[in-house]
Simulated scan of single mutants.
Amino acid sequence: MKHGTGEFRLEPSKKLYIDGLVSVIIPTYGRSEFLVNCIESVINQTYDNVEIIVVDDNNPDTNQRIETKNKMQKFRNHSSITYIEHEFNKNGSAARNTGFNNSIGEFICFLDDDDLFLDKKIEKQVHFLKTHQNFQAVYCGFEKDKKQNFPIYEGELSKELLLLDYHPVTSTIMFKRETIIDLGGFDESFRRHQDYEIMLRFFEKFKIGFVNEILLYSGENDGGNMLRGKKLEDLKEYFFNTFEENISKLEKKEKGIKKKIYSRHYSRVFWSHINDKFYLKALKIYILNLIKYKLIFIKECNAYLIKYLNNKKKVI
């Protein structure tokens, strides 16, 4: 089982945080045009005991770094905002860990730079965690592409996550501080699926609840930073190697779930290859998984195609 690679300056046994303070960590890379609105969505919260930590993960001496620094000038007189520049591009996981290492909040939020908090998000989630001691994190509904997505699941959600029924959207979640310390932060070896990775480790120990309201607007990015082709296949292989033990535990409890998990993930890879016109790669994925998982894989491919046609979304 892999663990996060973040190195934390706070000892979990020491109370080196401020009660009631919420630390909102915003990693930013290549999307400076969204950053001001993102930060202002936190400034405009109904809950005002907040610090904002912006971690610039752009490479130095690039236009993206220059543009981000210029945007941050607007907030130079805000004492509650900290701006940190990475010495080189590390990745989103590392930027989140950097932000946490410089935070002092009792509660932690990670906000993507193209997302927006609705004005009562922090207030509602702080209230939930203070009144529901059996949960160590809380998430909320969000709106994306003019579609509202309400939360359904709560508790220990390893099965739902691995089956892609529960999709962890990092910006919707608020964590208790000690939870992030216990997990060791984000695993910086994951350049994608960081949210899935940390939440699978989270669910080994903790439970998540939800506020059944739309409290986040998720940016309309075009998916340009998504992995494609061989890189996508390599990511899936790395993901499954990392969480083989988790999947095996589920298989012992529920016979056949392993085949369903693999089929569901690789059906997405198959349709991604079709969408990107990597037809030979798609054929290879189809044949290999048909041999391994037979009718289960066909069923998952068909189910995803139906979902795509109904929603008329781009297959990813």
Rank of each mutant, 00 (worst) to 15 (best):
T82D: 05
N97Q: 10
E106H: 09
G92T: 09
R76N: 09
I84F: 12
S103K: 07
N77C: 09
S79Q: 13
H78Y: 15
I81Y: 03
A95S: 15
R76H: 08
F107Q: 00
Y83K: 05
H78C: 13
I81D: 03
I104E: 14
G92Y: 06
N101G: 15
C109L: 02
C109I: 02
L111P: 01
I108W: 02
L111H: 00
N89A: 10
N77E: 14
I81Q: 03
N89Q: 11
S103W: 06
A94F: 02
I104P: 06
R96H: 09
E85L: 10
E106G: 08
A94C: 07
E87F: 04
N102H: 14
N89T: 08
I104M: 12
S80I: 06
H86T: 11
G105Q: 04
K90S: 14
S93I: 01
K74I: 13
S103P: 12
E85H: 10
Y83R: 07
S79R: 11
K74A: 09
Y83N: 07
H78P: 05
C109K: 00
E106D: 12
Y83S: 07
N91L: 13
F107L: 10
T98F: 01
N97L: 08
N102G: 06
N97E: 10
E87Q: 05
N101I: 05
